[in-house]
């Protein structure tokens, strides 16, 4: 019984040391909160919002057009192969689902292994 009491006291002391460290950290960090921070005026923030929105709109347009160009290229390739080279068309039709299935299963396996 006595032994157990000693252990409990030691644990309490350890927790107190943890609290001591936490208080010192909080003290230091609260000093950072007292630092003056220069805040730009409302106009600056508004300009930033407009610029960022314009930037993301341009990015979206770029990505969308790239997607459409690639989609058109793939589709025209498939149509050409259907009329000109039916063997190639059949090959693509078989290989694509196999590749997609393999890729998905592989990805899932990796995820499970990482967990």
């Amino acid at each position: 019984m006595k032994k157990q009491k000693v252990v409990i006291l030691d644990n309490e002391q350890l927790n107190n040391h943890d609290l001591g460290a936490i208080h010192k950290l909080q003290d230091g960090l609260s000093k950072v909160d007292q630092f003056p921070v220069y805040t730009p005026d409302l106009q600056w923030f508004e300009n930033m919002v407009v610029t960022e929105k314009e930037k993301s709109r341009k990015k979206l347009m770029k990505e969308l057009s790239l997607f459409l160009i690639i989609a058109l290229l793939i589709l025209s390739g498939i149509i050409v192969s259907f009329y000109q080279m039916p063997v190639v068309f059949l090959f693509i039709q078989i290989v694509t689902p196999v590749f997609v299935a393999f890729y998905t299963i592989n990805g899932l396996r990796k995820k499970v292994r990482n967990q």
Partner: peptide, 21 residues
């Protein structure tokens, strides 16, 4: 845009101080 700017201006010092820490 103005609402966004007001929100940012209000929270800017808090954000910068957090990032400073």
């Amino acid at each position: 845009h103005l609402a966004f700017a007001m929100l940012f201006k209000e929270n800017y010092p808090f954000l910068v101080k957090y990032l400073m820490k």
